[in-house]
Design a binder for these strands. Sequence first.
RNA 1: GGGGAAGUCGCAUAGUGGCAAUUGCAACAGACUGUAAAUCUGUCCUCUUCGGAGUUCAGUGGUUCGAGUCCACUCUUCCCCA
Length: 376
Amino acid sequence: MHFDLLHTAPRTKARAGVLHTDHGDIPTPIFMPVGTVGSVKAVHQHELTDDIDASIILGNTYHLYLRPGVDILKEAGGLHRFMNWHRPILTDSGGFQVFSLADSRKLTADGCTFKSHIDGSRHTFTPEKVVDIQRAIGSDIMMAFDECPPGESPYNYAKKSMLLTHSWLDRCWQHFCDTKPLYGHQQALFPIVQGCKYPDLRRQSAEYVASKNAVGYAIGGLAVGEPTEVMYSMIEIVNAILPTDKPRYLMGVGTPANLLEAIERGVDMFDCVMPTRNGRNGMLFTWNGTVNIKNKKWENCFEPIDPDSTAAADLDYTFAYLHHLIRSEELLGLQIASIHNLAFYLSLVRTARQHIVAGDFAEWKAQVLPKLMVRI
RNA sequence: GGGGAAGUCGCAUAGUGGCAAUUGCAACAGACUGUAAAUCUGUCCUCUUCGGAGUUCAGUGGUUCGAGUCCACUCUUCCCCA
């Protein structure tokens, strides 16, 4: 697995590249739909490929470990075969659950003990175990096990947490080197930069992480409660240190505006639940701003959701119909909204890439950004 | 014609002497960032300087310090028997 950096847009750090994997090439910058439990919620695999043309999706180690479990995944021949998805998969390590399930987890010297959100049973994740599970899943890109501290964490905690993440990284890396893929395709392990909102910690973490000769690197612990401007400045600090010839993955981000700002600062990969979750909750992202499709004003808007889209869902259905479906709690509404938002996110990064290649990314971004933040 | 039951904020409900009044639905908004989320929050009689103020529980009259709640009559609806 390797990354080719092809272009850098003038006057910015925005980059266009390709990440080559055994399951296909990923053009960057890229957005990766989140499919936590082996399913991008409300979206069919055929829609992901034929309609949205997603080139990679996410899975989650914690969720897949709890259900269906490692044995079933191995018996199935890995997640790709299990879910009939033949493009790349990236798995998060469960590090985010160390954050999001804070009430039912306990950090130990060795790793982290979780109380399952499904049945309350207790499970321990260690860096080694997290690598083993991701080997069983067979994800193309595995993530190192990290702690993702809250955005408002005080310095001392952020530092302690970062050092813990570094020590977990060492163990993940060692175990990654000591083990082999199970299904005949290559797997990469991406280390994760932490350090919260503190520049010196971010620098220290980026340097530490960059010392591993990884295929790519991730920036974690952002968009977790800190101001957006802080996030942008942390990205700048970290990307100044991470190797330029490797992809940078900004974990869990974000809004369309976040994506463009981060791309401008040299980020190549994104994932976020926002297009799918917010879509299911009635929020649509468009080139003209965001729409709350539940609002009364859409009941008689018979325009197609997005006439410029390549997704059938956008061409075939109107705002009024989607308004009706979502209000009626019809499953098709969740599906159309999710497909629309993912199609938009992917067209956003695709168009960004075209302008990076064309050399006018900065101008294009300046023109498009204000509209994206409008609430229609 | 005889007997019985019941009328509460759009709908449905709770309420048996201290109540602007329970809950659900609907309606109207808002939130959502490596998914414990097809979820959650707010508003939902009128006015408000958000502290409150004013009118309410089919209608009218009464008992009471105090009535959605008790009494009388009226109106309306439903059920049973003729």
